[in-house]
Simulated assay, not measured.
Amino acid sequence: MARDPKIAYVLLRNAHFGPRLASSVELCVRDLVLYSRYARSTLVACPPVDEPFAGVEIATIADVSLGGNVAKALGVARLLRRRGIDIAVVENHLPAAAMIAATSGARVLLHSHAYETAPRGAAGVAGARLKVAPLAGVAFVSEDALARFRDNFPFTRAPMRAIPNGLDMGAWSATEPKDASILSVGRALADKGHIEAMAATASALKTRPGWSARFILSATDREPGTVRKLRDTAEASGGRVRIDANLPHAEVKAAWEKSAIGLALTKTPEPFGRTALEALASGAALIGSGLGGLAEVCGPCAVTVDPNDAGGLAAALGALMDAPDRRADLARAGRKRVEALFDIRAVARRMDDFIDVCVGEGRAGS
């Protein structure tokens, strides 16, 4: 097509497309749109939001009382037809993507930030075939997520790509000196490793009076028992471990830029790991589990530990707290890695090129 394609990014799952409560998915979408060569012909279809991100056109998805996100997909299809959208990039919801592809007249690209669950049994495989058949393409946040999808959905014929999150490194500061502080950011879920991280941090702090720690948590309503354990341990630290919940991303970013050490200790494979990316970009020396996509984010630029071993983690954390030169080396290497591999301009260009493939302007095939 001679003109720029009309593109809609579609956010369905309890999305908050604004600076107050944005998750990694919404931040990724914002950045891909802002740095796209197609920014002027792109909108974001999302649930109502009180203060949307600046610089991005949005279209509100009407709420429905029954049917959930698949029912919302029918309203999205009507919106896409009305706006003359050429391709819809549907975030993280394969059934809705299939419904939109079947009913909107637009081409649909599924943009997955998760591990898509393998179909089970003959009926599951048949259903999965029907869902992926109408897709124009599938993009994943890591090579790990892409490889798992290829294994679990071998019948997919649409082109596929791994396109990570990116950051505008001009907006991220790695200024020194850092505060003598440790930072862990993420959803307050047991499999994110916060309980072990908290125990290790409390142990390491006992003999290092100049240090403190901070845990910035989201989704605190999901596992009340996990949150209670974390708060109990923090309270026993005598104020040296601070917990904050559901902060705007601007405050999370400021915390990363001050912290000397970061933790990314998910106990199960992570499709990507944006918190690790932000830690490296801010010049924090990172300790991570290296599981799943975290290995692609960090490479050799983090200390890798077993996230289930609080004692081993405490030892690794203490050793890093006591080694300023080692922290400085990790910080420099991590920052350089993000600049080389995750610059948002290059990442957005990769997504634009893949969109071209999916609308028929680029090279076909996967």
Rank of each mutant, 00 (worst) to 15 (best):
A260N: 12
L265R: 08
T266S: 15
E270T: 04
E270N: 05
F272I: 10
F272K: 10
G273C: 00
G273A: 01
T275W: 08
T275E: 10
A276K: 07
E278M: 07
A279W: 00
L280T: 06
L280M: 14
A281I: 11
A281Y: 13
A281F: 11
S282K: 01
S282V: 01
S282T: 07
G283H: 13
A284F: 00
A285F: 08
I287S: 00
G288Y: 08
G288P: 04
S289C: 10
G290E: 02
G290V: 05
L291N: 05
L291A: 09
G292I: 02
G292M: 03
G293V: 13
L294R: 00
L294S: 02
L294Q: 01
A295Q: 05
A295W: 06
A295H: 05
A295G: 07
E296V: 11
V297T: 07
V297Y: 02
C298G: 15
G299R: 15
G299I: 12
P300S: 15
A302E: 12
V303M: 14
T304W: 09
V305W: 10
D306Q: 10
P307G: 00
N308L: 12
D309V: 09
D309A: 11
G311F: 03
A314V: 01
A314C: 03
A315V: 15
L317W: 00
L317A: 04
G318M: 11
A319H: 10
A319E: 13
M321G: 13
M321I: 14
D322C: 04
D322M: 12
D322V: 13
P324M: 02
R326N: 09
R327K: 13
A328H: 09
A328T: 10
D329G: 07
D329C: 04
D329V: 12
D329P: 00
